[in-house]
Design a protein around this nucleic acid. Structure first.
Length: 591
RNA sequence: GCACGGGUAGCUCAAUUGGAUAGAGCGUCGGCCUCCGAAGCCGAAGGUUGUGGGUUCAAUUCCCGCCCCGUGCACCA
C-alpha cells in the first residue's frame, strides 16, 4: 500500500532530475532487512549505470527533489546507492485503521491500469476416464489464478476444455454395443467405461478386424449417426456427473464447459483458410503448417535439428484419413474465444510437455490472424510432472494412475485421524467437517507451494503432513486469531470509534509491515501465474503472527496495546482467510 | 542431435527476476505450557548455489564452455 505512494513520489523526483527518462523501472519495495528501514529502492543504481553517472551523486540529486516528508523520515542513501525509507510514526497505524474501517484489505480491487479480460483454460479432463492426479495441478493452479485475478478486479472467464471428441470414441462405442454391463454402468459409470475401453483397446492390438469395427463406429459418429450420437452424449453426461462431483469437493466452478466437440463445425473452415493463405499445405497425405522462415531456426517451432541439419517439424491440422488434430481444434478455440470474449489475455494451464505444441499454436495463429493476435497476450502457464518416489511418473503400486477422488478421500481420512486425536471432545460431524477443510487444504497447498515449473515427488506423508509449511499451519494461526477476537467481546465495526493504535513491540511492527505487502504479493501472483508466491507470503504472515501471539499478550494488555493487538489479530485473520480463499482453501473456525 | 526445464543444507524446496549477511520445512540435538489454543515458540548444528570462465559497485539470478537428470521432437491430446 504505502510503497505505491513512495514509488510515485520517487518516480516524480527521478523525472525531475532526469527529464525524458522512463520511470517504469523505478520501484520501491519492502526492505530486505528491518535495519534498512521499512522500504528500499535499488532503482537508481541501474539508472546511473545506464546513464554512466555516479550512482551516489544521482541518489543525492534525486533525494533533494524528493517530497515525502509527510510520509517518512529523511531518506538515507546507503552502500553503492540504495535508498532506504523509514516511515514516520503513525503511517502504518493509519493504514491499519483504514483497513479496520473496511476501506481496503491491503490490496486494490480496482486495477491501476485498465481492467483486463482474462480467459483461463484449465483442468480439461477426458470423457469416459476417471480424473486422476494428472489433473490436480491444472485444476488447482487454474482455479487459484482465476480467484486472484477476480479479487484484483479483472474480468475472468473460466473455460473447461474437456476432451469429448477423438479417436477413442470409436473403441468406446464398440465396447458400449458389445461389452457393456448395465448393472456395472449403474454402479460406477466411469469404471465401466474405462473397462470397456481397455478391453476393446487390448482386442484391437491382436485382432485387426476389431480395430476396423472401432474405426467404422467412429466414422458413423462423425457422420452424425443418431444411435452413436445418443450413446456419445450419454457418455459425456455420465462423465460430467463425475467431474461435477470432484469440482464440488474442490470448490472449483467454471463459467463455461466448451469441449473439443463444440468446435467441430469450424474445423474444416480453419484448414481451408490456412491453406488459402499459404500457411498450411498438403504433405504425405496430411495437411500441415510449416515454417515460414521469418524467425531464426533456433526460435522456430516449425523447425528441428536432426543430425546437424534443420528439418521441418510441422504441426498437423488434418490427418491423412481426413480427421482433424488437436492443433486444429485449438486454433478454432482460440478464434472463438477472441471473437466471443475479446480477451486481453488467454492463459493455458497445462503440463510442460505441451510447450512445443503451444509455441506452434501461438505462432500459427499469429500468421493466420495477425491483427487479432496483436491484441491478445497468449500465455502458456505450464507446470511440471508429479513423480513417484522412484522419480518416474506417479502411479500406484499396481501401475494404475491414482484417482483424484481416492486421493481426496485419503486426505480427509488422514486429517480426521489427527482431529479425533487432538479434539476428542467434539461431535463426530464437527470433526469430519474440520477434517474435510484440513485434508483438502493440505492437498491443494502442497500442490501450489512448489514453483509450478518444477516436478515434484508425490508422497502421501508429505502431502498430508500437518506441520511445517502447510495449509494446516496457516489455518491454525487463523483459528488462534479468531479465538482471541471472539474472547475479547469486541463488536464488529466498533473500531471506528476505538482508541488510537500504537505499534510498539518489535513483533507488532513486523506483523503489521507484512500485512501491508498483501497486495504486492497478489499482483505478483497474477503477473507471473505463480500462486506459490502467495503460499510463501501466507506462511510468513502466519509465522509472524505466531511469534507475535507468543510474545504479546492481547486480552490482558493495557490500552492502547490491547486495542492495537486486537486490531492485529483481526486484520491478520482477515488477510489469512482471504489469502487461503485465493488458493481455494477454506479456513475452519476451530481445529 | 536440437529445443525447453532442472542441479541450492543429509532429504524436500524457497529466494520479491541483478541487490545488502542465500532462507524455510522435515530429520538431528537442546530449551519453553501456573500465563489469550503447544497442530505452537526459542536456540544449535548443517552451504565453494553441478563445474570452469566472463560481464560489474553487486551474480543462485545475465552471457559462453563442459558434466549429470527430466521432458518433447509427423498423423494421441
Amino acid at each position: 500500500m504505502l510503497h505505491l505512494a513512495l514509488e510515485s513520489r520517487l518516480q516524480a523526483a527521478v523525472a525531475a532530475v532526469l527529464p525524458g527518462v522512463s520511470v517504469d523501472t523505478v520501484r520501491v519495495r519492502p526492505a530486505s532487512d528491518s535495519k534498512f528501514g521499512d522500504y528500499q529502492s535499488d532503482a537508481l543504481m541501474s539508472l546511473a549505470r545506464a546513464r554512466k553517472c555516479n550512482p551516489r551523486q544521482l541518489a543525492t540529486d534525486v533525494v533533494a527533489r524528493l517530497e515525502i516528508a509527510d510520509l517518512c523520515e529523511p531518506v538515507e542513501i546507503a552502500g553503492p546507492g540504495f535508498l532506504n525509507f523509514r516511515l514516520r510514526p503513525g503511517s502504518i497505524e493509519a493504514v491499519l485503521l483504514s483497513a479496520l474501517r473496511g476501506e481496503h484489505l491491503f490490496f486494490s480491487s480496482t486495477p491501476r491500469g485498465r481492467t483486463r479480460t482474462v480467459v483461463i483454460d484449465y483442468s480439461s479432463p477426458n470423457v469416459a476416464k476417471p480424473m486422476h492426479v494428472g489433473h490436480i495441478r491444472s485444476t488447482i493452479l487454474g482455479e487459484s489464478l482465476a480467484r486472484v485475478l477476480r479479487l484484483l478486479g479483472h474480468r475472468v472467464v473460466t473455460d473447461n476444455h474437456i476432451g469429448d471428441w477423438g479417436t477413442q470414441f470409436g473403441m468406446l462405442l464398440l465396447g458400449w454395443k458389445t461389452l457393456l454391463d448395465a448393472a456395472a454402468l449403474d454402479q460406477d459409470p466411469i469404471a465401466e467405461l474405462e473397462r470397456i475401453y481397455k478391453a476393446v483397446n487390448a482386442s484391437c492390438r491382436e485382432h485387426p478386424d476389431t480395430l476396423e469395427q472401432a474405426r467404422a463406429e467412429l466414422v458413423r459418429l462423425q457422420a452424425g449417426d443418431s444411435e452413436n450420437l445418443t450413446i456419445w452424449r450419454e457418455m459425456i453426461r455420465l462423465s460430467q456427473v463425475q467431474f461435477d462431483a470432484v469440482y464440488g469437493r474442490l470448490g472449483v466452478r467454471f463459467d463455461h464447459t466448451l469441449g473439443e466437440s463444440f468446435y467441430n463445425p469450424w474445423l474444416g473452415d480453419v484448414v481451408e483458410q490456412l491453406m488459402a493463405r499459404g500457411i498450411a499445405r498438403e504433405s504425405e497425405g496430411a495437411i500441415a503448417v510449416f515454417s515460414d522462415g521469418t524467425v531464426p531456426p533456433k526460435e522456430d517451432p516449425f523447425l528441428i535439428s536432426r543430425d546437424g541439419e534443420w528439418v521441418a517439424n510441422p504441426a498437423l491440422i488434418r490427418k491423412s484419413d481426413g480427421a482433424y488434430n488437436y492443433a486444429t481444434t485449438d486454433l478454432a478455440t482460440l478464434d472463438y474465444r477472441i471473437k466471443t470474449w475479446a480477451p486481453d489475455e488467454i492463459v493455458y494451464v497445462t503440463d510442460g510437455r505441451q510447450q512445443l505444441h503451444f509455441r506452434q499454436l501461438f505462432q500459427a495463429f499469429h500468421r493466420w490472424q495477425p491483427d487479432a493476435a496483436g491484441r491478445v497476450r497468449l500465455i502458456h502457464a505450464w507446470f511440471g510432472s508429479i513423480l513417484g518416489e522412484d522419480g518416474k511418473p506417479f502411479k500406484t503400486r499396481s501401475g494404475e494412475t491414482v484417482k483424484l477422488s481416492d486421493l481426496l478421500d485419503e486426505a480427509e481420512e488422514r486429517a480426521l485421524r489427527v482431529v479425533v486425536e487432538k479434539r476428542p471432545e467434539l461431535d463426530a460431524a464437527v470433526q469430519r467437517e474440520i477434517a474435510r477443510k484440513i485434508g483438502l487444504g493440505a492437498v491443494k497447498y502442497q500442490d501450489l507451494l512448489p514453483n509450478r515449473q518444477s516436478d515434484y515427488v508425490f508422497s502421501w506423508d508429505k502431502m498430508l503432513a500437518l506441520t511445517g509449511n502447510t495449509a494446516a499451519y496457516v489455518q491454525y494461526q487463523c483459528t488462534r486469531a479468531g479465538k482471541v477476537l471472539r474472547d475479547s467481546g469486541v463488536l464488529p465495526g466498533s473500531w471506528v470509534t476505538g482508541p488510537a493504535l500504537i505499534l510498539e513491540a518489535p513483533a507488532e511492527g513486523a506483523l503489521a509491515r507484512h500485512l501491508l505487502s498483501f497486495g504486492l504479493t497478489l499482483e505478483a501472483v497474477a503477473d507471473e501465474c505463480r500462486p506459490n508466491l502467495l503460499c510463501n507470503y501466507l506462511y510468513e504472515l502466519a509465522g509472524l503472527f505466531s511469534r507475535f501471539y507468543d510474545s504479546c499478550p492481547v486480552l490482558k494488555a493495557e490500552e492502547p496495546a490491547r486495542s492495537t493487538r486486537l486490531a492485529l489479530c483481526d486484520l491478520t485473520g482477515r488477510v489469512l482467510r482471504q489469502g487461503l480463499e485465493c488458493l481455494g482453501i477454506e479456513a475452519p473456525e476451530t481445529m
